[in-house]
Amino acid sequence: MRSAAEHLAQVLALVREPEFEAVPLGEALGRVLADDVRAAGAIPPFDNSAMDGYAVRGADVATASEAAPVGLAVIGESAAGHPFAGSVAPGAAVRIMTGAPVPAGADAVIPQERVAATATSVLVDAPAPLGAHIRRAGEDAAPGDLVVPAGAVLRPRHLAAAASSGVSQVLVTRRPRVAFLVTGDELVAPGGALGPGQIFESNATYLAAALEALGAEVVPLGTVGDRGADVLAAVRGASADLVVTTGGASVGDHDPVKEGLAPAGVDFRNVAIQPGKPQGLGRVDGIPVVCLPGNPVAVAVCVELFVAPAVRTMLGVPEPAWEPRGALEGWRCPPGREQVMPVVIASEGVRPATSGGSGSHLVARLAAADGLARVRADADEVRAGDIVAVRRFTA
């Protein structure tokens, strides 16, 4: 059997390197930035007021006190987008609003609640320190400063910072087109009526959501029955950077994925993990194909271990780390295979998400898990207090 690490290396060798495209900021949410965003100019571009109040010359009010307040003549107003055109002369003040440019000659702002004012004059009863309540030009960023680094997954705060830098579009990695199909004559869409031997189909719902969460452009190929020719036709018709299949990849008499894709160049073999042992990997007409088992928990595990890293590789995103955590209770492991256990993660450690272990069919219990724990292939059990590698779900 191939190890999980060996299988992952083979998966990553199939997929393309990141590709790039420029998109407007309005279309960049969730995309991966491919080039640094730097400030085109100073941010803010001019000295501006942090308060509603009065722009003054500090020297004029240096001796002001409650006993001997200083009166200043109000000679105009500076508002955001409507700066005062003149200069503040000795003995004068300018009414100023938050965000408005500080007029020439002024070197401090006095908040309006600290003065007594009329339309034409203001009475100041305390000194104003140099630079008080003034946001300096370039205080946030100087021209050329790094604002958003390449590799960032763009969130609203990143887009706001880019817009403040004067940027209207950004270079991002192209979202990989990932197609998927599920197989099985026994599958019924959620909400339908189950017949004898049938089950509700969940893998398509999971894959569509997981691939979108990972940043891929999702291409559903639908549910294909138990005919190898239909599987092959669906894969050949896909316009995608990667195709993911579920089910029909084992050694049974009704394994349509293996039947249809093995002659076309996909290699099917066992991987030493539990769940997720039967898998396939290769190219069909140049299209990379990853074939996963059909049981829902195995699909979720294999997406986290193999499909998600492939998507991140095409996006240019680093792989999240697995962290050591202590087991809060013990459980059994399959000998000779690395176990990947859905777990509940707490501050003090981890415990299995279900009493049924890592059974590949326990999909209803999967929602209780926060992530996965990996147990070495040479272990046949985990004891309370043992250290396991843990990572929260990434999809």
Rank of each mutant, 00 (worst) to 15 (best):
G91I: 10
L328P: 11
V37N: 02
R31F: 03
N48L: 14
H254V: 15
W331V: 05
T98H: 11
V170H: 03
G195N: 01
C302L: 01
V102K: 09
W322E: 15
A9W: 05
G197W: 12
A9E: 13
M341N: 12
P352S: 15
P101Q: 12
V70I: 03
A80V: 15
L8S: 04
P127D: 05
G356Y: 15
V244M: 10
G225V: 08
T173A: 04
I96F: 10
G385I: 02
A209N: 11
A179R: 11
A327K: 03
E323N: 06
P69W: 07
D47S: 01
A213V: 05
Q279K: 09
P320T: 09
L366G: 10
A106C: 05
L187F: 07
A389D: 15
A4I: 12
A249R: 01
D35Q: 15
W331T: 07
Q198V: 04
S355E: 15
H133G: 04
P320H: 05
V115L: 02
T223G: 08
G282P: 09
V390I: 04
P278I: 03
A373H: 03
P90D: 12
H133R: 15
D125K: 14
V271A: 04
S250I: 01
L292P: 11
D226M: 12
A262D: 13
G222A: 02
R57C: 03
G356C: 13
A85C: 02
A160H: 13
S87H: 13
P335D: 12
V188H: 03
P90S: 13
F200G: 06
G53Q: 05
P143G: 08
G248N: 08
L261W: 01
G336S: 03
A262S: 14
A100D: 03
P156W: 09
G286K: 06
D145K: 06
D285N: 13
E338T: 09
W322V: 10
V266W: 07
A28C: 09
A369Y: 05
A389C: 03
Q279D: 04
D241M: 02
G294W: 06
R157C: 00
R227P: 00
R383Y: 08
H7M: 14
P278M: 09
N270F: 15
V303F: 11
T183G: 00
R177L: 04
E201A: 13
A162V: 06
T246S: 07
P309Q: 05
H133K: 13
C333F: 04
P296W: 01
A353L: 02
R325E: 13
V122A: 00
V115N: 07
N270K: 13
F46V: 14
D378C: 01
G58V: 11
V311Q: 05
Q339D: 14
R135M: 14
A193E: 15
S78F: 06
V343W: 04
P196S: 10
T313R: 15
R312P: 00
A55M: 04
V88F: 00
L12V: 01
T246P: 05
A62F: 08
A179F: 10
R376N: 07
A128V: 03
L130T: 14
G58E: 15
P352A: 15
L366W: 08
I134V: 07
R392H: 11
